[in-house]
């Protein structure tokens, strides 16, 4: 980045904002409008958009409220990345622009589009409700206000970062699974579920977890890390997702979904052979009946094309598998020790 900052060291310059426009009452399809304005260094994208709205084109529509990075209203895609307009410096974006001097601004993805840069947020709220993203207190409501719960600083630390979430939906916008399945639970809801599950004051841990391991739940995530990368509050969302998975296996075993069984089959193979036994992987993940029904035609095609994986007995254990096993054992013992330490505290 240092090279390009030298490139844009000037104090003021013309900047073009290429903004996604769409008014459902007039336009049949979206288009881009270019606004070129002279800006000074140190200005944020939101302030530039405000300037355009106030002085150039008042029909430009976007959400903005606190302008201080805490309300989450102004999330939009700036140069192909979802972020808050109010905390994004124009000069930083100039460095990332594909076309020199042009900053591209689009609405968030994966949410229904309303107008220009405004998208519908109701689906996110709906999912928060579906997955009970609230603390359902262990204390009956009638007793509220009389006594505080005792919570250790260590417990607070576990969900401290997760409570930074401002529901800006940047992670929703960048999520690759949501692109394919609108019903997918979505990263933000997983993060919040994790936070609720980690809270000792909450009384519906198991129930919430049972919802999360269903179809379109926590096992659908493909670990692409886009959510974590885009999070405007730098929350380690993937840690939360892994946390839920570990918790799910610990409390519910691998019976729930193919995702969990798939993970377990991988683990088995690596331990035994150091490589995958692909031929039996579908059977172990989804069962024999499912495999015969869904994969047999493909298997036949693969055989014809001579693309079949080697039969299981021929998959030989990798060289050095002994030391790998040893290492895995060591790792496992570390993890158990950590767990013991944690619960001991």
């Amino acid at each position: 980045m240092s090279d390009s900052t030298i490139q844009h060291h000037e104090e003021s310059r013309d900047v073009t904002f290429r903004v996604h426009r769409f008014n459902p009452q007039v336009d049949s399809k979206p288009y881009f409008d270019d606004y070129t304005i002279k800006l000074e260094k140190g200005i944020t994208v939101l302030r530039a958009l405000n300037y355009i709205k106030e002085h150039v084109d008042s029909t430009l529509t976007f959400r903005a409220f606190c302008q201080a990075g805490i309300c989450g209203s102004c999330a939009m895609r700036i140069n192909n990345m979802s972020k808050l307009a109010c905390t994004t410096q124009v000069w930083d974006e100039l460095d990332k622009a594909r076309e020199p001097g042009v900053i591209k601004i689009e609405p968030l993805r994966n949410l229904p589009h309303i107008k220009d840069l405004v998208v519908e947020m109701d689906p996110v709220v709906g999912k928060m409700k579906k997955y009970s993203n609230w603390v359902d207190s262990r204390m009956p409501e009638e007793q509220w206000g009389k006594k505080e719960f005792l919570v250790s600083e260590e417990e607070f630390q576990i969900y401290d970062k997760a409570t930074d979430c401002i529901l800006c939906a940047s992670c929703v916008s960048e999520c690759t699974i949501l692109r394919a399945h609108k019903e997918y639970v979505s990263p933000v809801v997983l993060l919040r579920s994790y936070r609720m599950n980690a809270d000792s004051r909450d009384g519906i841990h198991d129930q919430r977890l049972a919802g999360l391991v269903q179809d379109h739940g926590v096992w659908d995530c493909t670990h692409c890390y886009r959510c974590q990368e885009t999070c405007v509050k730098n929350i380690p969302i993937m840690d939360a997702i892994h946390g839920i998975r570990e918790d799910a296996i610990e409390r519910r075993g691998t019976k729930d979904t193919s995702g969990a069984r798939h993970a377990e089959a991988f683990m088995d193979d690596i331990e035994k052979k150091g490589r995958l036994v692909e031929a039996t992987l579908p059977i172990r993940t989804n069962g024999l009946a499912w495999t015969l029904k869904n994969l047999l035609p493909m298997a036949v095609k693969m055989i014809i094309k001579r693309r079949t994986p080697p039969p299981p007995p021929l998959v030989k254990a990798s060289k050095g598998i002994q030391s790998l096993r040893k290492e895995m054992k060591e790792m496992a013992s570390h993890v158990t020790k950590d767990h013991e330490k944690k619960s001991g505290e």
Binding site: W134, V135, W144, G145, F149, F156, Y159, D199, R201
Partner: peptide
């Protein structure tokens, strides 16, 4: 305390 009881992370 009521806020604590309903889950505010103090």
């Amino acid at each position: 305390r009521e806020l604590d009881n309903m889950g505010t992370p103090w």
